[in-house]
Computed example of a mutant assay.
Amino acid sequence: MLTKKQLDLLEFIHTRLQRDGVPPSFDEMKDALDLRSKSGIHRLITALEERGFIRRLAHRARAIEIVKLPESMGGVPSAPTAAGFTPKVIDGPHPSPAKPANITPDEVQLFARELPVMGKIAAGVPIEAISHVDHHVAVPGQMLSVGQNHYALEVKGDSMIDAGINNGDVVIISETNAADNGDIVVALVEDQEATLKTYHRKGASIALEAANPAYETRVYPEDKVKVQGKLVGLIRTY
């Protein structure tokens, strides 16, 4: 079931694709639906994608394709899914799409972006500092903040399992050298070892806390710990 605004937007996109072969811009969609901001278009597009009516592509700007149409627009009725469940999946080891070009900051969060995977990060005892690009991974734009630099790391170890971070997961990190208490951070210890832990400042000391009772909290003088980024997302491959 689509709302009137969702149906109006789907009809507008479909008409423009039929006429021009390319989808309309965010500004055109906003004007056509008489909305005040492009954030409203973003929400409508996300709703249409979640309901399986459109698919957003990452290899070119404004890449939207119609997957199906509702019956009111001549579409074929959809077969019901078990218990109404529609899975949302982030695919695993497939080739990363190219970064889209010529899109606005409002539009960039609709598309996947390619991030470098900077090797492995210890969610356990700290391992050697990470400084090389191992490969790249495509990351949904919704995970990322416009204007911020990001990178990815593969998790090694189980010390953060109670925070939902498992061995083999890929974590998405926003580059920063500052953190608040309770943030999960990439911390460089004594300029030699990198680890993924929950950050707590206690006076002139920094506590790096695991999310697994099998691992003890490690406390260091503040000059021995450098924050290299904060956790903003996670990708898991089954």
Rank of each mutant, 00 (worst) to 15 (best):
A207W: 10
A179F: 07
D169W: 02
M160H: 10
K156D: 14
E222N: 12
R201G: 01
K202S: 01
N181Q: 03
G164H: 06
S174L: 03
N167R: 07
T217L: 10
G182Q: 08
D223S: 15
A163K: 05
A178I: 08
I165R: 01
P221S: 14
E222S: 13
I206C: 05
L188C: 11
L188T: 06
A204E: 02
D162V: 02
K224H: 15
E209R: 15
G182I: 04
I184F: 01
L153Q: 09
T195H: 12
L196R: 12
K202F: 02
E154D: 06
I165A: 07
T195K: 13
I161Q: 11
E222R: 09
I165E: 09
G157D: 06
L196G: 13
A214R: 15
A178M: 11
S159R: 13
G157E: 05
V185W: 01
S159P: 13
I165M: 07
I206P: 03
E222M: 12
N181D: 12
G157K: 12
E190K: 15
A187S: 07
G164N: 05
N167V: 02
V171E: 00
S205P: 00
Y220T: 10
I206G: 03
V219K: 05
N166V: 06
G203P: 07
T176P: 03
L196I: 14
P221W: 10
I173C: 04
I184S: 00
E190Y: 04
Y215Q: 10
P213C: 11
E222F: 11
Y215V: 11
E209V: 12
K202G: 00
Q192K: 15
V170D: 00
Y199L: 03
A163C: 06
V189L: 05
N181V: 01
A194T: 08
D223H: 15
D183W: 02
G168V: 05
D180T: 07
N166P: 03
G203D: 09
V189S: 04
E190G: 11
E216W: 02
Y215R: 11
Q192G: 11
A210F: 03
D158N: 13
V155A: 08
Y199E: 04
V185T: 02
A194G: 04
T217W: 01
R218P: 03
A163Q: 06
G164M: 09
G182A: 07
A207F: 09
S205M: 13
L188Q: 08
S205A: 14
L196C: 14
T195E: 11
H200I: 08
R201I: 00
L153G: 10
Y220K: 11
D180V: 04
S159T: 12
G168Y: 12
V171S: 03
D183E: 06
A210Q: 09
K202V: 01
A163P: 01
V171G: 02
Q192T: 12
G164A: 09
T198I: 05
P213H: 14
V185F: 01
N212G: 05
E175T: 06
I206E: 02
T195W: 06
I172F: 01
V170L: 11
A178Q: 13
I161N: 07
L196F: 15
N167L: 08
Y220A: 08
